[in-house]
Write a protein that binds this DNA or RNA. Structure first.
Lengths: 124, 124
DNA sequence: TAACTGTATTAAGACACATAGTACAGTTAA
DNA sequence: TTAACTGTACTATGTGTCTTAATACAGTTA
């Protein structure tokens, strides 16, 4: 019954972007398996009390980025996602390297970051 | 002669934000030492061919965030920056942890990231 | 047939960003 | 003192994005 997606109206990101990001994460994490049928444009719009056009924009862009496929009359479905996940991993790796360089400029060494990573390694 | 700040009109960030980010980096990296006199609002606006109001907004926010101090009639000057650097480090640490968690969800382990960090440790 | 599905279009309002022009007060050097 | 600089404040205007709204059309399914 939890509504898959949560919208925060105080978020700086526009609504359609929050919808996109939400589904991206659900798909990439495997929470929504390939073939899963997404809620219809009108259904999701109603349950979130936002405009159908806003949902449609999110779905259109998700399809353009190969996260889902939309079939008129049938619905929208999660794609295989292996390609999308691969591309996403590369993107995050780039962000990671960029962030590390920025932190080095402020005097945070790679060694400190390694230690920070080790701290989170324990499994409680 | 290099104009301190570069504006990219194709950048998604608004101009005033690009100006802010540019000076933040220059100040935090130490390229602009405490006490350094920034170009005047009108001078920078002319050299970048953008509106003085846009520069003023950037300077106003930089002052609110303790990166610079502006004195009417005299100019704008770089602050000490130790406090700002401390706040910036905390902010980057949060972004780092957030990014790491996102990468873990996509199957990139902390171990892999540690190895990645070690690769960049050599000094050529 | 009726009720669903995605898709497309146009209109309107709200808001942020940027520009333009003007004005005022403090500082500094000629 | 004057002239030229400095930051600051304000209003008006144009533009683009986001969002809502109201329709309309075509494909699918029970």
């Amino acid at each position: 019954m939890s509504p898959l997606i949560h919208i925060n109206f105080r978020d700086a990101r526009p609504i359609y972007q929050q919808v996109k990001d939400g589904f991206c994460q659900l798909i990439l994490s495997g929470a929504l398996p390939p073939g899963y049928k997404l809620p219809s444009v009108r259904e999701l719009a109603t349950s979130l009390t936002i405009n159908p056009n806003t949902i449609q924009r999110a779905y259109r862009e998700l399809e353009q980025e190969d996260y889902i496929v939309s079939v008129p009359g049938k619905g929208s479905f999660v794609c295989d996602g292996k390609q999308a996940a691969q591309a996403r991993r590369r993107e995050l790796m780039e962000r990671f390297e960029k962030l590390v360089k920025e932190m080095e400029q402020l005097g945070i060494s790679r060694g400190q970051l390694i230690q920070k990573l080790r701290e989170g390694e324990e499994k409680p």
